[in-house]
């Protein structure tokens, strides 16, 4: 079974800081990591290869330093890595991103049996890219998978959807997005050390290698525009109370009374 895993390099979001003046994120000093759910997808592909044989290709679209993510994936056991990098790709929304990723897949010989994405990324957090690759390649898709089995040439999957546990059958080739419950991730960052020494070469494709025109990719090929970034609006008028524990409790009780969540007390007991 030939598997493609899509990985994106993202800033370690919980550690980012905001430049309040310019409303941008400060990337300096923030580590870049492989999107956590993409690590789950990669781990799942390693387990599937163990059982079914085949070859794992990892693909990433991003700036040149995304190479680090691919080296880590190679160190973790992927067979081949492709970096899609071109200044024309910058500023892509999910429509344009999925186009570049899908075009890269259609260049692969033979066409892969299984395509794996994370269910979402931690920086843009849309979860759109997987289904949009599937649409462009006319593949069936299942999102948020937390179990994968093979039954002959069919995939048998489980996923949770709005409080329902679905059991699903789907023929190959197919695209799946994986949830964090699919499998525990072994420590990939250990691999990062090995990655520095990885002998394998990374394949690099730019727009012209994929037969793409500049207006189909990046900002120009995007349908959406980020007009503005802003901080979340604050509620105002809140009263802040400090004092002894008893004073704090009294303030709280008083508020509950004024909201009629507690009945007023008669005073003298």
């Amino acid at each position: 079974m030939n598997i493609v895993v899509f990985v994106k390099q993202v800033p370690d979001v919980p550690n980012i800081r905001i430049d309040e003046q310019r409303m941008t994120i400060i990337r300096e000093g923030v580590e870049s990591i492989i999107n956590p759910l993409d690590c789950v997808a990669l781990q799942a592909s390693l387990e599937l290869r163990e059982r079914e044989g085949g070859c794992i290709t990892v693909i990433s679209m991003g700036p040149p330093q995304s190479e680090e993510a691919l080296r880590e994936a190679l160190a973790a056991g992927a067979d081949q890595a492709i970096l899609l990098t071109d200044s024309a790709f910058a500023g892509a929304d999910t429509l344009a991103t999925s186009h570049v990723l899908a075009m890269a897949v259609s260049k692969l010989q033979p066409f892969p049996d299984l395509l794996l994405c994370g269910m979402q990324t931690i920086d843009s957090d849309t979860g759109h890219v997987g289904p949009q690759i599937a649409e462009e390649l006319d593949l069936p898709q299942v999102c948020g998978v937390n179990e994968i089995h093979m039954d002959g040439h069919l995939l048998v999957l489980k996923r949770l959807s709005e409080g329902f546990l679905d059991t699903i059958r789907v023929p190959l080739p197919a695209l799946l997005t994986v949830s964090k419950d699919l499998c525990p991730v072994k420590n990939l960052s250990l691999g990062a050390v090995e990655a520095a020494f990885s002998q394998k070469d990374i394949i690099r494709w730019a727009a012209h290698d994929l037969g793409l025109q500049p207006d189909e990719v990046g900002l120009k090929g995007s349908a959406t525009h980020v007009r503005k970034l802003r901080p979340p609006a604050d509620r105002t008028g809140g009263r802040i109370v400090t004092g002894s524990p008893q004073f704090i409790v009294d303030a709280l009780i008083h508020k509950l009374e004024s909201m009629s969540i507690l009945d007023e007390e008669d005073g003298n007991e």
């Binding site: 429509l95 849309t126 890219v129 997987g130 462009e136 949770l160 995007s222 349908a223 959406t224």
Partner: peptide, 23 residues
């Protein structure tokens, strides 16, 4: 932005070649 909404709307937006924002 239910599980189903987040699964099929991206696919529909792609088929219509239009934009989609999430959640």
């Amino acid at each position: 932005a239910t599980s189903f909404g987040r699964e099929f709307f991206p696919r529909l937006a792609k088929r219509l070649r239009t934009g989609l924002s999430a959640d």
